[in-house]
């Protein structure tokens, strides 16, 4: 991240964190004090989260002041998101990774563990290795290797963890 976009990010996060800190503080104050059960008020459940909420608000306020000093608002006039940053190769790769992993996690528990696991590994490898410019026939080897890795991993994970480590699988 460049220094300029960092200033903007700091500005936004400090506001978000400050709202969160204040919300935590308010919720903590609203918690019961347990005084109605003859307990010391200092044992109230809200004491420590209230302190933490206050600290988060104070620290993020300090960050907000600093971001404003560094002309965060001026930077925003040039646009919230730097041009072209969303279409770079690395952003694409990040998004593909997250989406694939989310899909996999979403399918778990709904279908028998083996199927999504195999599919996830197979698709993951291919998405990053497959070359659209070449015909499929020229990449048969890639397909085969990916399938092989996926089958082996799925089998080994299921065997080792279920039988050896006695761990439950989703």
């Amino acid at each position: 991240m460049t220094e300029k976009s960092m200033v903007k990010a700091d500005f936004v996060t400090s506001v978000v964190l400050m709202v969160m800190g204040i919300a935590i503080l308010i919720m903590s104050i609203q918690m019961p004090t347990m005084a109605d059960r003859n307990q010391s008020v200092y044992s109230a459940p809200g004491v420590v989260p209230g302190f933490i909420g206050a600290m988060i608000s104070i620290l993020s306020f300090a960050m907000l002041v600093r971001a404003l000093k560094n002309k965060a608002l001026v930077e925003f006039r040039a646009g919230a998101i730097p041009k072209g940053s969303l279409s770079t190769e690395s952003t694409k790769r990040i998004l593909i990774t997250i989406v694939l992993c989310l899909l996999y996690a979403f399918l778990l528990g709904k279908i028998w563990f083996g199927i999504p696991t195999f599919a996830f590994i197979f698709v993951f490898i291919l998405v990053f290795e497959y070359d659209h410019k070449k015909p499929i026939s020229a990449q048969a080897r890639k397909l085969l290797v990916a399938a092989l890795i996926a089958v082996l991993t799925t089998a080994i994970v299921m065997l080792v963890f279920q039988k050896l480590f006695l761990v439950n699988l989703p």
Binding site: A105, T117, F120, I121, F124, I125, I149, T153, V157, P170
Partner: peptide
């Protein structure tokens, strides 16, 4: 390697 690692993270 990474998809295998992710499967381990999930497990």
């Amino acid at each position: 390697l990474m998809p295998i690692v992710f499967v381990l993270c999930v497990v």
